[in-house]
């Protein structure tokens, strides 16, 4: 076992991990931050997306040891301390950007990375950026609409489909 330390959502944490412990497993099983979901475990679905040093990564395809010393942000850190949703989360709620909700943590974290890079993306840029996030309910339309709304763009012309 190897001791790792990292900052998760602003809090310093540490734990003992095996070499093969994935960052996703460390978050879920050691830190009990079960908002990060493991959908496919084959790097396809993106439900496990978190930010490591500000960059969106698939936490099921990175070892916990590789995040030693890093700043990690997960879905649990997106809302304010009092539970007030951030703009992306609020937009997902407002525009029905989730159906079963399983992919939502990854969608929100990918969206946050996108809007940091590109604050006013076009709908096609949103779709392109979400290439690695799969929604098994196929609810993409409202996910894209939610992210457009979160970026402050008028989505009234985007019809519900």
């Amino acid at each position: 076992m190897t001791k790792v330390s990292m900052t998760i959502n602003g809090k310093q944490v540490s734990g003992d991990v095996e070499g093969r412990t994935l960052l996703a497993s460390f978050l879920r099983e050691d830190q009990r931050l079960t908002g990060t979901h493991i959908g496919c475990d084959t790097s396809q679905c993106g439900a496990c997306v978190v930010h490591v040093d500000g960059k969106a990564v698939k936490s099921c395809t990175m070892f916990a040891i590789e995040a030693d010393g890093a700043q990690v942000a997960t879905i649990e850190g997106q809302a304010a301390e009092d539970g007030t949703l951030n703009a992306i989360q609020a937009a997902f709620q407002e525009h029905h950007g989730l159906q079963c909700g399983f992919c939502t943590p990854g969608m929100v974290m990918s969206a946050a990375a996108l809007l940091k890079e590109n604050p006013k993306p076009s709908a096609s840029e949103v779709r392109e950026y979400l290439e690695g996030n799969i929604c098994r309910c196929t609810g993409y339309h409202n996910i894209v609409k939610s992210i457009m709304a979160a970026s402050g763009q008028d989505v009234s012309a985007i019809a519900a489909e």
């Binding site: 993106g46 990564v57 698939k58 996108l114 290439e131 690695g132």
Partner: peptide, 9 residues
């Protein structure tokens, strides 16, 4: 290549 999260790693 891949998707944005893959490209970051």
């Amino acid at each position: 290549i891949g998707d944005p999260a893959v490209r970051n790693r």
